[in-house]
Computed example of a mutant assay.
Amino acid sequence: MADDQAALLMAIALRRVSERYACAVDCGDGDLLAAQFTPDGVVESPRGKFVGPEQLSGIPAMVANRYLKTFHAVLNQMVEPIEGGAEGETYCIARHYFHDPAGRYLCYEMTIRYQDRFARTSTGWKLSRRALTVVGTHTYEAQETPN
């Protein structure tokens, strides 16, 4: 029973890290995003490799400069304990809203899998590495709504 409880508490804590990461991107909060990582944390994505707090904290601004708004939904997450932490896979749907050159309001949607490695630190669970794999994309016209 104690092992089951420990596994459940770990899974909840790791999901919260992933949810805060998504929120940080959508809210444009670089400090919140960087706080989800160990000091030597890494994000690997099609846009490049970002290492350490300074580079990681710039990710939300990079996204905000490209899109009007975003919406990241964290879906299922499978994690397993390993020596020194945990690793797993996190599924996400990421929607990116923008106007095209003709003025149409569009959504660029990405289906994503993150390959995650987590470390347990003195301040709680943190990502040490997150590698983004794009499974598929779709762009479609959306209805623009006031913020």
Rank of each mutant, 00 (worst) to 15 (best):
V43E: 13
V134R: 02
P101M: 02
E44V: 08
Y91I: 09
A142I: 07
S57K: 04
V134T: 09
M1I: 12
D4T: 12
Y67L: 03
A13D: 10
L33H: 02
P46H: 00
L132P: 00
D116I: 12
T123K: 12
G58F: 05
P60M: 00
G136P: 06
F37Y: 09
T111M: 14
Y91T: 08
A64H: 04
H96Y: 02
G52F: 04
R130A: 00
E83G: 12
Y114H: 08
T111F: 15
D26E: 05
R66M: 00
R129I: 09
R120I: 13
G88L: 04
E89C: 15
E19T: 13
L14R: 05
D116Y: 10
R16L: 10
Y67Q: 07
C23E: 08
P81C: 12
G84K: 00
R130P: 10
A13L: 06
T38K: 01
G136F: 06
Y21E: 03
Q77C: 14
M1V: 13
V42N: 02
D29R: 06
Y140C: 13
T139P: 09
M1T: 12
A13F: 08
G30N: 01
R66Y: 02
V134L: 06
G88F: 05
L132F: 05
D100M: 03
T70Y: 01
T139V: 13
S128Q: 02
P101V: 02
A22E: 04
G88T: 10
A102P: 08
R15V: 11
L106D: 04
M10K: 09
E44A: 05
G28T: 05
R15H: 09
A73R: 15
H138L: 12
T139G: 07
L132M: 05
A61Y: 03
E83D: 12
G103N: 06
P81M: 14
R104D: 06
N76A: 14
R95A: 02
G88K: 04
I59K: 02
G136D: 11
E44Y: 05
G48Q: 00
Q77I: 15
F118D: 05
A119R: 11
N65I: 01
R66G: 08
K49G: 04
V79K: 08
V17L: 08
T139I: 15
G41E: 05
R113C: 15
G30M: 03
G84T: 05
Y21Q: 07
E109C: 15
E19I: 09
D4Y: 14
R104E: 06
L75A: 13
E89V: 15
Q143V: 14
G58L: 01
T90L: 13
T38W: 09
R20Q: 11
V63A: 06
R16N: 14
M1A: 13
C92K: 03
F37E: 09
S128V: 03
L33D: 06
V43K: 07
G41L: 04
